[in-house]
Amino acid sequence: MATFLVLIPPGALSGDEKARFVRDRFSWVAFFLPFLWLAWHRAWLAAALAFAVQMLGSAISDHPVFGLAGLGVCLATGLLVALEGPSMVVAGLERKGWTIDAVISAEDRATAEDIYDMETPAGETKARDGVSLPASGTATRPHAPMLGLVGFKEGR
């Protein structure tokens, strides 16, 4: 089962036809070509940063002593984008005013779209209160962890 985040444009109501489905999963294309994957998803700043880091890693890998370190930098960049790329896309859309309308677990996108359409029948479109994600700004904790790291200002 895959998890899909459903985002709606600014000012739209639940069940909007322009809703965007983002599959939250590991991407092999993003692992091997991180800057192209980010550019395809219009994350321009992240794409430029990934390109610069990969070029730095490539330049370091030509050095006889630090060759493996350069390869490690390139692989780490690819792994980070492959794992966190969908989150970067969602964050970019949220900065543009899109809101997360639903989180759906489904086998494929077509099934996720069917489930989303069944949740909000035609004619009964309404605004939802919002979806509370564990690391979102609506979390009850003041400093939610990021990228799987522990939040340190929460106390022990």
Rank of each mutant, 00 (worst) to 15 (best):
V90G: 08
A46C: 08
D117H: 15
S61R: 09
V131N: 00
L33Q: 14
M55L: 15
H41T: 10
E94Y: 06
G148C: 00
E107L: 12
T99M: 11
R42I: 11
G57T: 02
S132T: 07
W37L: 02
D117R: 15
A82C: 05
I115M: 10
A91Q: 13
M1Y: 08
V53C: 09
S105I: 14
F26H: 05
G72V: 05
P34E: 05
R95N: 13
T111N: 12
T3M: 10
V150C: 06
M88T: 14
A76D: 10
F4C: 11
K18L: 15
V73N: 05
R141Y: 07
L93I: 09
I100G: 04
L56G: 03
V90Y: 03
D114R: 15
P10A: 07
F152H: 01
F26M: 11
P86R: 00
A110Y: 07
L56T: 12
T125C: 08
V89S: 04
G67Y: 00
A46D: 12
T99P: 02
G92E: 07
D117P: 13
T3D: 09
M55Q: 14
A47T: 08
E107P: 10
F51C: 08
P9E: 01
R42P: 10
V65F: 08
K96N: 06
A102E: 13
W37I: 07
G151M: 00
T120V: 15
V65G: 03
L147V: 10
T99S: 07
P64E: 08
G155P: 00
L75Y: 10
R128N: 12
G148Y: 01
F32W: 14
R109H: 10
L56I: 12
R20H: 10
F32Y: 10
G123K: 01
V103Q: 14
S27H: 02
P121F: 01
W40P: 07
T140Q: 13
I100E: 04
G97M: 04
A139W: 01
R23M: 11
F152Q: 10
R23L: 07
E84W: 11
R25F: 04
F21M: 10
F31T: 05
L49F: 07
L7T: 12
L7N: 03
A50N: 04
V29H: 13
R109I: 15
V53N: 04
R128M: 02
Q54N: 14
P9D: 02
V22M: 09
L79G: 09
R25C: 10
V29W: 15
E154D: 08
I104C: 02
V22D: 09
A52T: 04
G155Y: 00
G72W: 07
L147R: 08
F51M: 10
A2R: 15
A46V: 04
H143P: 03
G97L: 06
I104H: 05
L93C: 03
T140E: 11
L68K: 09
T138F: 06
V6I: 12
V22R: 05
L147Q: 01
V65R: 08
E84I: 12
